[in-house]
């Protein structure tokens, strides 16, 4: 791992504006915006795995799509090896599209049901002019070997494969164009537990052999902990905590990371815990609360949290965005009483 980031993101914001009915326009209602990402700063070093966790709707997938160039950020920039993605044009942009590959979540809908696996892979190879003529066939053979699919997979259609095999096909398709960075958006969440381990092992092995940089977006904290060097916890489109995987998981500093970990099922048979780790739900990204985005659900929230958005500052071994991170770690921050949730 080198210190020089291969992929970095600064102040990244994405807003989607909601269509406004004519009546609302005439009445002068303001346009509503979904604030999917709100100023994300991240950097990934070459060969590193960065885990990205958070609840659904927190912006994980939007971030993955931004990095893959599928969503144009409203503000902020993405840099790949120091070059701004927004400045890349023509050949350079196509090179970026090749070097950064996204693997989608659902292997049942992300493969074209009317194309054979061989056609899919040769399409990827031809579009990016990776090989020509007989080189294509040869490369497809190599790819099957790489992801451990039988060679006769070439002439089969996606429906002939199981979920785990389909996800391997998706990995083969991403690897076909020799990328440097893989963005795995919920790579294994659609798979059965016993098959998940197979795909995760394959990914770890390929990463080592090919020196890939991986962004592992997932909600399964056990897996993220296992595969990631560093982990970023996202809440309502902001990074609330980021740090080395073991630090974040063994001693989380942000109350949201703590709650997320407490809620995650482990194999420890829990006796006695009768109250949920975290009450309430993720607020709508249409109306993000002022101040700290987590204060509505936070057991430690104080007056300051309602007014002021905390910055991402060093706490423990990583960075956390919490006004009271030190006090919470020391156990001196008072826990507020549960308030009735707003109707």
């Amino acid at each position: 791992m080198s210190a020089e980031p291969i992929l970095s993101v600064s102040g990244l914001s994405v807003r989607f504006s909601k269509p406004r009915p004519l009546a609302h326009q005439l009445l002068g209602h303001p346009r509503q915006e979904v604030r999917a990402l709100n100023g994300i700063d991240l950097a990934v070093a070459r060969g590193e795995t960065l885990g990205i966790v958070g609840e659904s709707g927190c912006g994980k997938s939007t971030l993955a799509r931004c990095l893959a160039g599928l969503v144009t950020p409203t503000e902020g920039e993405i840099r790949f090896r120091g070059e701004r993605l927004a400045d890349l044009r023509g050949k350079d942009r196509r090179a970026y599209n090749r070097r950064v590959q996204l693997i989608f979540q659902d292997p049942y809908s992300s493969l074209n049901p009317r194309m054979t696996v061989g056609d899919m892979l040769s399409e990827a190879l031809t579009v990016h002019r990776m090989r020509s003529g007989s080189g294509v066939d040869e490369r497809i053979g190599e790819l099957f070997e790489l992801v451990r699919l039988p060679q006769d997979a070439r002439d089969k259609y996606p429906h002939e494969f199981s979920g785990g095999q389909r996800q391997r096909i998706a990995i083969a398709r991403a690897l076909a164009v020799e990328p440097e960075c893989l963005i795995a958006d919920e790579l294994v969440s659609a798979l059965d537990v016993s098959v998940q381990a197979q795909v995760v092992n394959l990914m770890l092995d390929l990463q080592d052999r090919l020196g890939l940089t991986v962004l592992f977006v997932a909600h399964d904290l056990r897996l993220v902990r296992h595969v990631s060097h560093r982990v970023a916890v996202i809440y309502l489109g902001s990074v609330v905590e980021i740090g080395p995987s073991e630090t974040v998981f063994s001693a989380p500093r942000h109350p949201y990371s703590q709650a997320l970990l407490a809620a995650a099922p482990t194999l420890e048979v829990k006796e006695g815990r009768k109250t949920p780790a975290l009450s309430g739900e993720l607020p709508s990204p249409l109306a993000i609360p002022p101040g700290c985005p987590f204060h509505i659900r936070c057991p430690y929230a104080a007056e300051r949290c309602r007014r002021e958005k905390p910055a991402l500052l060093p706490h423990g071994g990583g960075l956390a965005a919490c006004h009271f991170a030190e006090e919470i770690a020391a156990g001196t921050q008072p826990v507020r009483k549960a308030e009735p949730q707003p109707a």
């Binding site: 537990v193 098959v195 998940q196 056990r222 897996l223 296992h226 595969v227 990631s228 482990t266 194999l267």
Partner: peptide
């Protein structure tokens, strides 16, 4: 096959 108590980034049992 559920990671627990294994060294990070080692192959999981499958």
């Amino acid at each position: 096959s559920i990671p627990r108590g294994v060294a990070p980034r080692t192959p999981l049992y499958s």
